[in-house]
């Protein structure tokens, strides 16, 4: 019998050794340390209207990782006409990476995918965009997976479906209105997607483009009238997309909406900070900046071609609720949203 016991023991040992061998083989090694850098990496950032939390997150990532990065920051100050001298400066200083904020900036500095006059844009330096709502429709990249040019970026919008889902979860809204600038391609694309998705969630959509003034630009004077129209049409909520014109007039826009008892939903962060929107599903700008930095790190440190890097987006979005507005319009968020939302108060308070 003792012989048998021995055989048994040996067999069991063989099983165990095999089992552990397999598992240990499969565990992968993670590259850890960053090699010493001879000089700081040079990033040239072009913004639309000054620095935001995105750039803060971007810088923080590099300082936390101990990667030296020198940044030059220029702003278009809301005017694409300011681009040429900045392009000149970029050509002169030869940065390692050009960072652009927003659709307008990106189109002015890096240009569209296949420009008719490529010499007008920075085309030979790796580029990366942030805060571009619809990079494909804006003809900045071919697709998220394959950008088709040495440019990559981070996407910041939650999908239209999850935005509408948040709206439906908040309250028993049946009819929502969108007031938008129809000269902006971003807004037009956004409204198209809304028209497609809203019926699926049982939402009726009222579409109200802002009439153009004499200068061919949307007329801010007409906003009050449009809000009243929305109310008269039976809308219970205003939807605020990635629309620079509405965002610029956000405070007045949302306040007037509250005055007639209409809360506002925002799909970007800016209106929540600078206006009186009631709630929104947005990317956290700071986290977004860090995500952009991971993309930049691959380009700067790992020397990867941006063309090989797909456009990435955050997997989690923030549900923001302005509780003061909610109190004012008497539309408190449901308990399960209270459990997960971030709360803020109006700028006035």
């Amino acid at each position: 019998m003792s012989n048998h016991n021995k055989t048994q023991k040996i067999l069991l040992t063989v099983f165990l050794v095999l089992a552990f061998g397999i598992t240990s083989l499969s565990s992968a090694m993670e590259p850890e340390d960053v090699p010493g850098f001879t000089r700081p990496f040079y990033v040239f950032a072009v913004l639309w209207r000054g620095e935001t939390e995105v750039e803060a997150g971007f810088r923080e990532y590099f300082s936390q990782r101990g990667i030296p990065v020198r940044m030059t920051v220029r702003s278009l100050e809301l005017d694409r006409g300011n681009a040429p001298p900045i392009i000149e400066e970029i050509r002169r200083t030869k940065p390692d990476l050009v960072y652009t904020w927003g659709t307008g900036t990106t189109l002015s500095i890096l240009g569209p995918l296949n420009p008719e006059e490529p010499e007008k844009f920075v085309q030979d330096i790796p580029g990366m965009f942030v805060l571009v709502a619809y990079p494909i429709s804006a003809k900045i990249v071919q697709s998220f997976e394959n950008t088709g040019r040495p440019v990559t970026g981070v996407s910041f919008l939650a999908s239209i479906e999850s935005q509408l889902k948040a709206i439906v979860d908040y309250g028993k809204f049946q009819k929502i209105a969108v007031i938008y600038d129809e000269t902006s391609s971003n807004s037009r694309i956004n409204v198209e997607s809304l028209k497609e998705s809203a019926p699926e969630l049982g939402l009726e959509l009222v579409v109200l483009p802002v009439p153009l003034g004499e200068n061919g630009k949307p007329d801010p004077e007409k906003l009050t009238e449009l809000i009243q129209t929305a109310k008269n049409e039976g809308a219970q909520l205003l939807y605020m997309g990635p629309d620079s014109f509405i965002t610029r007039h956000g405070d007045a826009f949302t306040s007037e909406a509250i005055a007639v008892g209409l809360p506002t939903f925002a799909s970007t962060q800016a209106p929540l900070n600078g206006s009186r929107a009631m709630f929104g599903l947005v990317s956290d700008y700071h986290t977004l900046g860090k995500l952009a930095a991971t993309q930049a790190e691959k380009i700067l440190v790992d020397k990867q071609n941006p063309q090989d890097l797909p456009v990435v987006s955050l997997s989690r979005f923030k549900l923001w609720i302005n509780i003061d507005v909610a109190r004012e319009v008497m539309m408190y968020p449901p308990m399960d949203m209270i459990a997960i939302a971030d709360f803020k108060t109006s700028p006035q308070n």
Binding site: G171, R327, P334, M335, I338, A339
Partner: peptide
Amino acid sequence: EQFTYATEELEIPVQGLVGVEEYFES
């Protein structure tokens, strides 16, 4: 704690709480 947060921090009156029964269900 959640309810205290809603009523004390967010100052929502307890009668005005929305979706409580759905929340309980979950």
